[in-house]
Design a protein around this nucleic acid. Structure first.
Lengths: 231, 231
DNA sequence: CGCTGTATTGACAACGTTCAACGGTTGTGG
DNA sequence: CCACAACCGTTGAACGTTGTCAATACAGCG
């Protein structure tokens, strides 16, 4: 039940805090293991906990009234997630699903007010986190408003490289299982179009595909594609 | 220079505060008049102040690297805006431009920490505000990912009715000058398409157009259009 | 009165979705 | 252990929504 301080000290959220404060926070946290494919919480469910990802990878999705799904974001180790209550919501606005074996720290939402009370840093950090997320959302809106699909996919893949890139001999591997459908739901297009684009890129030697796999061979090349003003 | 308490007490931000606290806040605020077409701050400018809109209407825009513009949001009376510094930014991420004669309260950003220190309510309110804005952004992403242009425009117009609707004999007036270009930049399309859609709606008696004018005659009809699942 | 910014409308092209069929891989249950 | 289902991916063809290009009209303003 007890999580060791050394496991979390490297995350941005904690590295400005004293050992004592970290210990207090950890003492109230429950670690939770989530198998790939399992959900941490469901869209519409009562927001009774908030979380931090220790290990693994999650995707947060939303389903529209007419059944279409989009991926809101990918959760990486060190990220806070599911703190809907802090935003004055009673329910979770999306579903968090593990795409690979993951471990999350869980706190009951009732503790949130105490936490920010005891540790003003946390409130500031939370504000920054949400601020960044808002900027990401606006960036995505900007892209969807002004760019054609191929550039959006390029940007999305580059973002994944940043967040989950792992160096390999032949290039940079996206370090979790990701399907064309997933990329489609991140960019607002269909898996067909994504498949075509990735095939074209593979022919150019920019990437290497595979079942739920993606290896980026030529980052500068992709960046050029992403930044290229409309011809 | 002094702003009377009664002018602001009706806004959500202040109505949970004591008269004394309100007075303290107001004592440090500078009211600023902005003519239609003038900017309050520029994208990229140093974020040395944050604001609350007392009267009028602003639009917040962003320009992309290749010169395309989008409208991030519309600022209504009572809204906080431009608190970039609280999100750990040094510059404003967008430009705030008055679309009609407006009055804003200005505070130097250095005061922000003191404010949330003295008035914990404010930090909570700020979190809620940003949380809502994040949800709006996600809603917009969802719409742009899954809906065709006409429905997006319908949603956008309905949102404007909520925010800036003014009852008239023939329907609900959008209470500030708004062009087809503006609507296009809010929905991620072109003014041509917006013009076509509005013309079609006018033929059906749903709206009445005009130069920088918009009157919604049939709200339920528009709502039906907006919610209609894809045929 | 002419200029500038806004709006309308048509013709056309194209990007991307939809529909459809097929191949390959993984995992499961008999 | 093999057969089969379920899922993921690929690719072709047709269609349609929407952007692009272009021409015109109109209102407001100096």
């Amino acid at each position: 039940m007890k999580v060791d301080r050394s496991l979390v000290k490297s995350f941005a959220l904690f590295n400005k805090m004293t050992d004592l404060d970290v210990d207090v926070l950890l003492a109230q946290a429950a670690p939770r293991r989530v198998a790939a494919g399992d959900v941490v919480f469901d869209q519409g469910g009562i927001a009774d906990h908030f979380f931090m990802l220790l290990h693994g990878r999650l995707k947060v999705t939303q389903v529209t009234a007419d059944g279409q799904q989009i991926i809101v974001r990918v959760v990486n180790p060190g990220d806070l997630f599911g703190f809907a209550k802090a935003l004055q919501r009673v329910d979770y606005p999306g579903t968090a699903l593990a795409v690979s074996e993951s471990i999350a720290l869980c706190w009951p939402t009732e503790l949130w007010p105490q936490f920010i009370d005891k540790n003003p840093h946390l409130a500031v950090t939370a504000l920054h986190t949400i601020g960044q997320r808002l900027e990401e959302a606006h960036a995505r809106i900007r892209e969807m408003s002004t760019q054609e699909v191929e550039r959006r996919v390029a940007h999305t893949v580059l973002r994944l490289v940043e967040q989950a890139g792992k160096k390999e001999a032949a290039g940079i591997r996206i370090d979790f299982p990701i399907s064309r459908q997933d990329i489609a739901e991140m960019t607002g297009t269909t898996l067909h179009t994504v498949s075509r684009i990735l095939s074209a890129w593979e022919a150019k030697g920019l990437v290497e595909g595979g079942r739920q796999k993606l290896l980026v061979c030529n980052v500068p090349g992709l960046t050029a594609l992403a930044d290229e003003a409309k011809k």
